[in-house]
């Protein structure tokens, strides 16, 4: 039964992907890639990866679509008709695919409990984390405690990407024409956007509340700093799309957002340094409180807060610079 659902969803993914290649209207291709992300999120749920599915739905179907659309309004919506025959790429792709499929023949069967991946490390997380960390969601305890170094690294990578985007785009070009899709100025009077405004006003608080739930319920259910941050960012971007970039930037000035992107990494690394000052290893939370389980829970909460602040700051910063970019005249 389950494999039929997998097959159906994978079929939908393949059809969507093939349609994306064939379309030359980039606008439609971007919308389809958003649908692609949503379907793959459904597939991730059936594969038991609920945390990942939450992330994929918020990032793939939400934020990256908005960023792509913002870019399209700056670079044009049409793809040119290809001039070359794509024989060489096709050959490369077919050969690579054949090699990879040949590789899967030696792989252990799908879903077998005694596969090599399931023998090492993972059993320890599943059996011991309940006692050592004291929270039910194993993904959260691995992410924030057992593999805290990795997560600190990833958070730093996101911060670095924000710095890169700011270096590329923050200057602003001299020729002026406002980004029509995202940055258009709206008059404050009541116009035919009233339905959108009222709808957004009703939705945004609940989206933000859900973000907080995902953040603080991460110990018991799917969620965590990464997911909460992108849900928060998606809610705020919705607000900015409906009410205009100017209004959004008055609510949350760019300087504050830039500060957020840096502050989260500092919180994360600061906790590591605090634990070192207390005489234990970097990011070993046992130094924080006397009871080992309480210490772990407190450490995880603080670290997830750092992740939330950085990722939220990063997403909004990127949105601000892409949406605020003015189109250059040719």
């Amino acid at each position: 039964m389950e494999s039929i659902i997998h097959l159906g969803l994978l079929g939908l993914l393949s059809v969507t992907a093939i349609t994306i290649i064939r379309l030359r209207t980039l606008f439609a291709a971007v919308m389809l890639s958003s649908i692609y992300s949503l379907v793959s999120a459904a597939l991730l749920v059936t594969l038991d990866a609920v945390d990942v599915a939450l992330m994929e739905a918020a990032v793939g179907a939400g934020i990256s679509t908005v960023l792509m659309l913002g870019t399209l309004s700056l670079v044009g919506r049409k793809e040119k008709r290809p001039v070359r025959q794509p024989l060489l790429p096709l050959f490369v792709v077919v050969v690579t695919g054949a090699v990879l499929v040949y590789g899967t023949l030696d792989m252990p069967g799908f879903g077998a409990p005694d596969n090599p991946v399931h023998r090492h490390v993972a059993p320890r997380y599943l059996q011991e984390s309940g006692r050592e960390i004291g929270i039910p969601n194993v993904v959260t305890s691995v992410l924030a405690s057992y593999r805290g170094y990795d997560t600190l690294g990833e958070t730093t990578v996101i911060f670095a990407a924000v710095v890169g985007v700011l270096l590329l785009l923050a200057g602003g070009s001299r020729h002026t024409e406002q980004n029509e899709v995202l940055g258009a100025e709206q008059s404050a009077t009541f116009d035919d956007r009233v339905i959108l405004r009222v709808g957004a006003k009703m939705l945004v608080p609940f989206i933000l509340l859900f973000g907080l739930y995902v953040q603080f319920h991460a110990d018991y259910g799917p969620g965590g700093g990464f997911q909460a941050a992108v849900i928060f960012a998606a809610g705020f971007i919705l607000y900015a799309l409906v009410f205009g970039l100017k209004v959004a930037q008055r609510v949350l000035p760019p300087a504050v957002v830039y500060l957020c992107a840096a502050l989260g990494v500092l919180i994360f690394a600061g906790i590591g340094l605090t634990t070192m000052a207390e005489g234990t290893n970097f990011l070993d939370y046992h130094a924080l409180l006397r009871d080992p389980q309480d210490a772990q829970v407190a450490g995880i909460m603080l670290v997830e807060l750092g992740v939330l602040v950085t990722v939220f700051g990063a997403m909004i910063t990127i949105f601000y610079v892409v949406a605020g970019r003015r189109r250059s005249r040719p």
Binding site: D192, I195, L196, M202
Partner: peptide, 16 residues
């Protein structure tokens, strides 16, 4: 309840 709110607003936004 969420769908009842988002669906009409989304349709409206699309038509607009």
């Amino acid at each position: 309840a969420f769908l009842l709110l988002t669906n009409p607003v989304g349709s409206y936004a699309l038509a607009r």
